[in-house]
Design a protein around this nucleic acid. Structure first.
Lengths: 261, 261
DNA sequence: TTCTGTGAATTAATTCACAGCG
DNA sequence: CGCTGTGAATTAATTCACAGAA
């Protein structure tokens, strides 16, 4: 799961919408937008929940934190809900975003269609490789890292996307934060440390796969017998001395990001 | 947040490790691997927790579900823990994975270094575009979608990654599942419907950005006054008639995936 | 004395189930 | 009636705080 948030009572005070609810609002919004495009005027909590992949009780509870936007006996007005959720998420305003690290992944992100659609605008692409400077990716010329601070402040960017290799991520993060960015979406497989007040969310392919593998393994040992138990390498003495050094498939460690910047 | 799981009591029965704990094991593993490479023999819960970005009480509680692998007064043996967590996650075995949809994103995933490292092996790259067939990406020749079923069964693949546009995702998903895949990592911005027993986790850039925007918005209306209130477009009558049709920035809807397959 | 392991307490999230509005 | 909105109940996750092993 992508996670994030720095800390803070997990629920943003103020109007106090639970974090779990916030994380689902984009799902509802997507389902609603699809309905809107098909010109469907209203939906019931049941229908919308099913389209969003959640159950209706949860959806109704989620909406109850936003207000009473439905009509009993009828359902929700699609257009109206789209607006209310967009506003709640802050999508009625424009969010300039910079992407740092323009490799395969950075390029994929830059080309992402759904990006521009919901209030997000790619204000700049930044990469440390000088040979990339000036080259357009997704129609936007790549700029050199040296310009980072200027780009952030000139464009009033508050959201940054890090798609660099793991080794460069913290450094890039520090510069982004130093320049005024307060929200970061991190694709590099590293834990970023940021000052209080800065939000970080991470997306990590490797973690997702590992979670799937965990469940996959359970499935395998399910029908056959009771204990799946051993399979390959032998354990090792608990806190005895050191076990064999973990060598093998080349340099891995804090694995390089999805792609070189 | 990447989320997923089909349903099931959220905690996998059997040894009953909480889902939230499973989701953190990969983080601990990464931190431990880094320590292992620096030949650090032991770590305290405090140090490891800090490296993984969680608090120590949580880490200790998480480890308690796996067993008592630490030594009081000392800490945890790094190598031993690496092995135990790897085994728990099912990483001591090899997981062949197929990636469907080889565009920018698919290519970035194929090139992902940390992929091969932790028990995952890219068994095949699949794309519907015949002009890509045979072309190598990250050293692996792309195969045509027609071969999908054969590839899955020949390689005993149980984990599939979908990196196609949203429109093709459900169809690809159905074919993967039909061919025997039981775990899916979905990068397309769609809710996939799968039969009982199949796990789906999703990674969605747009959702992550929207969550960040929500918090970002709160920050903005924090210091100034009490109510951030309005900013752009006007609300609309609640369940009156329909509001203005949401036109604008080109065809968006169920936005196309991060990249064309 | 140090740092793990874990019951107990607390807080968050989900689900139930139904009162009551349209 | 149908379907929302929401208190109450339930379940999961986190945090506290400390007994006890090394």
């Amino acid at each position: 799961m992508a996670t994030g948030r720095n800390h803070r009572p997990a629920t943003s005070r103020s109007r106090g919408i639970p974090e779990a609810t916030v994380a689902r609002l984009p799902l509802y919004l997507r389902a609603l937008t699809a309905l809107s495009e098909r010109s469907v005027p209203t939906v019931s909590s049941e229908e919308l929940a099913s389209a969003a992949g959640v159950n209706s009780a949860k959806l109704r509870k989620d909406f109850s934190y936003l207000g009473s936007y439905g009509t009993r006996g009828v359902g929700y007005d699609v257009e109206y809900l789209v607006y209310q959720i967009s506003r709640e998420l802050g999508l009625t305003q424009d969010w300039p975003v910079v992407i740092v690290g323009i490799g395969n992944l950075g390029a994929a992100l830059a080309n992402y269609g759904g990006f521009a659609s919901r209030g997000f605008r790619v204000a700049a692409l930044i990469d440390a490789d000088p040979t990339l400077s000036g080259k357009p990716v997704a129609g936007i010329p790549v700029q050199h890292t040296d310009e980072l601070e200027k780009i952030i402040s000139d464009n009033g960017v508050s959201i940054g996307v890090i798609a660099t290799p793991a080794g460069a991520a913290q450094q890039v993060c520090d510069r982004l934060v130093g320049a005024g960015v307060t929200s970061i979406l991190n694709f590099a497989p590293t834990v970023l440390s940021v000052p209080e007040g800065v939000d970080v969310r991470k997306v990590d392919l490797s973690i997702e796969l590992q979670i799937l593998a965990f469940h996959e393994q359970r499935k395998a040992g399910e029908e056959p017998a009771g204990e799946p138990e051993t399979d390959t390498a032998p354990p090792a003495a608990p806190p005895a001395v050191a076990v064999q050094k973990r060598t093998g498939s080349g340099p891995d460690g804090d694995v390089p990001a999805v792609m070189p910047a």
